[in-house]
Deep mutational scan, measured.
Amino acid sequence: CHSECLGNCSQPDDPTKCVACRNFYLDGRCVETCPPPYYHFQDWRCVNFSFCQDLHHKCKNSRRQGCHQYVIHNNKCIPECPSGYTMNSSNLLCTPCLGPCPKVCHLLEGEKTIDSVTSAQELRGCTVINGSLIINIRGGNNLAAELEANLGLIEEISGYLKIRRSYALVSLSFFRKLRLIRGETLEIGNYSFYALDNQNLRQLWDWSKHNLTITQGKLFFHYNPKLCLSEIHKMEEVSGTKGRQERNDIALKTNGDQASCENELLKFSYIRTSFDKILLRWEPYWPPDFRDLLGFMLFYKEAPYQNVTEFDGQDACGSNSWTVVDIDPPLRSNDPKSQNHPGWLMRGLKPWTQYAIFVKTLVTFSDERRTYGAKSDIIYVQTDATNPSVPLDPISVSNSSSQIILKWKPPSDPNGNITHYLVFWERQAEDSELFELDYCLKGLKLPSRTWSPPFESEDSQKHNQSEYEDSAGECCSCPKTDSQILKELEESSFRKTFEDYLHNVVFVPRKT
């Protein structure tokens, strides 16, 4: 048989008469490798580009789960590009990614509803959504962080984005990388972005840091009482949809009607710091009717980097990364020049730590249904340095008659930039024990000054392991946590139920 035959053949030295091919099969003959313009397919066939392209389009058009959109890589027609490569849609070739590779997620039936953290986790790592997304989240724990972890990498949506009755959302900033909504599939009414009845939605994105392009379709905003109209108009300008909307697409009466839409800028007039305090004062603000001013709200939190936005980490279910302080308005003076500047002394802060701070007014709604208010920009203030805590785990070892090696770990709280350490030492008198000992005694162990690591005695271990207080009263049991108490109650309830079950099964009433 021919060298490319495997198993047997019907005619000697003829690659077209093989029972099976050793390498690849091409047009009725066995070959060692697939010549151009053919590609290896499933490690035994040679196919042309049209064959591989037909497989790709067949799966793409069917949208069946589990099928493969075949691509070409290293002269092979394979189910998908290997790690580190992405497909070129024009020629199906796998090309190296520039940075992290995109991950295209194809949605069944063309859309997916995100109504819980669990459903959001199914899209973790996706960068391109081939379909439409509907966000409908009523509640949950730590929602802002969970949504950002699972949806934060999405850069492109081919269909539309719909935010509907998501009472738990305060902001859409968890879509931190969303840059493009194509609108290839539109919501009824030709809408590519749809926001309806979101009672706590206050911000779409921080438009000073976020760009969003909507290729096709219109915007729809109705019944978002805490979303200011200025935020919607800003989205029109940034996304390129200005002029597409009709009169009733953006409701003037049901958007922002319960919001404090600040239209003035508060400026800080005085800032002073110490290692654990920050004193702030800002310019006074009074609405047209000074009785509408209820006070100020001061927001602050630790910020290692200057990239904080107002609604980071917030949701309507209680999660809030900001510390909020309510401040009463100052006494009002008739003389504008003698107006008191409101302020606040922030206490209990960490030394040498940068804080993000902003302040906003708290006002009631005027009778004319106009909203007044003022808010400052987010500023960054760093507390002063102070003395560091003591170095940890000092170790001293003498390696000769004239040297001592000293080692330690950095302090747990540096409280500033540590530039150097101060080492103090003092000579001590020799131990009298060394002169009084009889060095001729056998088995004498000389006193040693070398360091030995501390260890816990058996008594201390027994005390720590004991669940009861000892007789001397030195140790006591740790208080039980809520989960331990709940577990004990469940076990007790189970024992009672099981005992009742045994009584009912074992003891049967005697027939009379």
Rank of each mutant, 00 (worst) to 15 (best):
S173V: 07
A195C: 14
V170T: 09
K218P: 15
S173F: 09
P342H: 06
L107I: 08
W352Q: 15
W352V: 04
R332L: 03
L345R: 05
G110V: 03
K350V: 03
R244E: 06
F365R: 11
S366R: 01
E109T: 13
T353L: 07
L392D: 07
K407R: 14
D393E: 05
Q306V: 11
F174M: 07
F193N: 03
K242S: 11
P388E: 02
G256D: 01
T353N: 05
I278S: 02
S230K: 12
S166N: 14
T323N: 14
S376M: 10
I188D: 12
G140D: 12
D335K: 11
N320K: 09
K409W: 09
H222T: 15
G140P: 15
E246P: 11
G295K: 15
S173A: 13
W344P: 02
C317L: 12
E310F: 13
L293A: 00
A374D: 02
E237R: 11
V170I: 14
D257A: 02
E184M: 03
Y160S: 09
P287F: 01
G243Q: 12
G295Y: 02
R179Q: 10
Y194D: 14
T254S: 13
W352R: 02
V170R: 08
D377G: 05
L180W: 08
L196Q: 12
Y285W: 12
I114D: 02
Y305F: 14
D335F: 14
I278A: 13
S338P: 14
T254Y: 11
Y191H: 10
L147R: 02
R247Y: 11
V104S: 07
L252F: 13
A149I: 07
R332N: 06
K360W: 15
L331N: 13
I157H: 03
N334M: 10
V308S: 10
T323W: 12
R244K: 14
C317N: 06
L180T: 12
A251F: 14
Q203H: 05
G373C: 00
L133Y: 03
G373K: 03
N150M: 13
G348L: 10
Y355Q: 00
A259I: 12
E237T: 10
L147N: 01
I327S: 05
L265E: 09
P329H: 02
W408M: 01
H106L: 07
E283G: 09
Q121H: 02
D249V: 12
K409E: 06
R202V: 05
R291T: 02
N263D: 05
L178M: 14
L172A: 10
K267T: 11
D257F: 13
L298M: 13
K162W: 14
N198C: 00
G343I: 15
E156Y: 05
Q354T: 05
S400T: 08
L266H: 01
I114Y: 03
L153E: 15
D393N: 14
F268W: 11
L293M: 06
Y305H: 13
K234S: 08
F221C: 13
L252A: 12
G373H: 02
L107M: 10
K407H: 02
F174K: 01
S333P: 07
K350M: 08
S389Y: 02
K209S: 10
P351D: 03
V308H: 00
S400C: 09
T241G: 15
S158N: 10
P410V: 01
W344T: 14
R332P: 11
K267R: 12
P330Q: 11
A251Q: 08
I163S: 03
Q199N: 11
Y191F: 12
W207G: 08
T254F: 07
Y355L: 00
G131K: 01
C261T: 07
A144S: 15
T118L: 02
Y285L: 03
C126L: 01
N255Q: 02
G131W: 01
K301D: 06
L229G: 06
G217E: 07
T371A: 07
Q403A: 12
Q203R: 12
K301L: 09
E184W: 10
D315S: 15
T118W: 03
K242I: 08
G189I: 01
I379C: 12
T273A: 04
R281N: 13
D326I: 14
L349I: 09
G373N: 03
I157A: 00
V128Y: 07
D367K: 06
Y285N: 01
I154S: 02
G152T: 01
E368A: 05
T241D: 09
M297A: 02
T215I: 14
A168I: 08
P225V: 04
Q203M: 12
D328R: 13
E148Q: 15
T213G: 07
M297W: 06
R179M: 13
L133H: 03
V397Q: 12
K375A: 03
I405H: 05
Y300F: 06
K177V: 10
I129L: 14
Q354Y: 15
W282V: 01
G125Y: 02
V325M: 15
N340D: 13
L153G: 14
I157R: 03
L293D: 01
S396P: 09
L123R: 03
L180D: 11
Q339G: 11
K301C: 04
D367L: 04
L169A: 14
A120P: 02
N399F: 14
G373S: 02
K253E: 13
G313V: 07
V170C: 11
P388V: 15
A374Y: 06
A385S: 06
Y305A: 09
H106K: 11
V238I: 13
S119D: 06
